[in-house]
């Protein structure tokens, strides 16, 4: 039997539920061998537009349903476990990283319908009113994925943002983009509505200023940024008072969810 042809994969951006080539038509080779799309500011703009459009639908879903979809992401990731382990080097730490990533999706899936009870409050007020504080999703969140660990770092930032009901665009690690781009394929089969998660790869310094200054982005997670980049994001984010989140990829905590939420307080008269 003749050996079959070598099928080389074209990595693509994941925007609005579709795998697309970069608008720039360009690519870069982080590790010398594989072409990775070099996303442009227009790809970023398209991703933000898709996320904004998807926001009402995703945040309007029941918490139960969001939890189901996050759980399905864990299922899909588990189904591709070997692929991710190979992509991360095939070592024992790689195995542990993939398992931790799967676990992260399950953990945050459980939080969707518990968060408002835990983070929300009924406040005592001096008057005939109920006074509630309820967490609501911030809106469109840009996540700059940590460089390491390439898969787990991203999942630890992404899962809580989606759990909160935000729509997200991820700028994946510049030197190690493949786990992030492959995660896009997992997300595509996990029942997220189109545009809820968007994955963009490219040169960080070409994308970051556009993300940070975009008026339709409500929060930027700068966990993967250098101090210099963080400073730049904070300056540009001031124009529309974006939330700038300094997180970590160690461990899981409900604080990671509320970090990309807004606490809204409502008054309601008693007896009406």
């Amino acid at each position: 039997m003749p050996e079959r042809v070598d099928v080389r994969k074209t990595y693509k951006l994941f925007i609005n539920g579709e795998f697309v080539r970069s608008e720039s038509g360009r690519s870069y080779r982080p590790d010398g061998g594989i072409n990775v799309p070099r996303g442009s500011r227009k790809d970023l703009r398209d991703a933000v537009r898709a996320a904004r459009t998807a926001f009402a639908g995703w945040s309007g879903r029941t918490a139960m349903n969001r939890g189901q979809i996050l759980y399905r992401t864990a299922e899909m990731l588990d189904g591709r476990r070997e692929q991710f382990i190979a992509e991360l080097g095939g070592t024992e730490p790689a195995r542990q990283e993939v398992d931790a990533a799967i676990e992260t999706w399950v953990w945050y899936a459980g939080w969707t319908d518990k968060l408002s009870q835990v983070a929300g409050t009924v406040n005592p007020v001096a008057g005939p009113y109920f006074n509630f504080t309820i967490p609501e999703p911030s809106g469109v969140v840009g996540i700059v994925a940590p460089e390491a660990p390439p898969l787990l770092g991203l999942v630890r930032r992404l899962a809580p943002a989606l759990c909160a009901g935000n729509t997200v665009l991820v700028v994946v690690s510049e030197p190690h983009p493949l786990p992030g781009l492959t995660l896009g394929e997992v997300l595509a089969t996990s029942d997220f509505p189109a545009g809820t998660v968007n994955v963009v790869s490219g040169i960080r310094r070409e994308l970051l200023p556009w993300l940070a200054s975009h008026m339709d982005v409500n929060a930027v997670d700068v966990t993967g940024c250098t101090p210099e980049e963080t400073r730049q994001v904070e300056e540009l984010a001031a124009a529309n008072v974006k939330r700038v989140v300094h997180g970590t990829s160690n461990g899981m905590t409900p604080d990671a969810i509320t970090a990309v939420m807004e606490m809204k307080t409502v008054w309601h008269p008693i007896g009406v």
Binding site: R45, V48, R52, W210, S213, H214, M215, D216, L236, A239, N240
Partner: peptide
């Protein structure tokens, strides 16, 4: 301004 805009404004 050089920044992408939002319908909110």
């Amino acid at each position: 301004t050089g920044a992408y805009q939002s319908g909110d404004y």
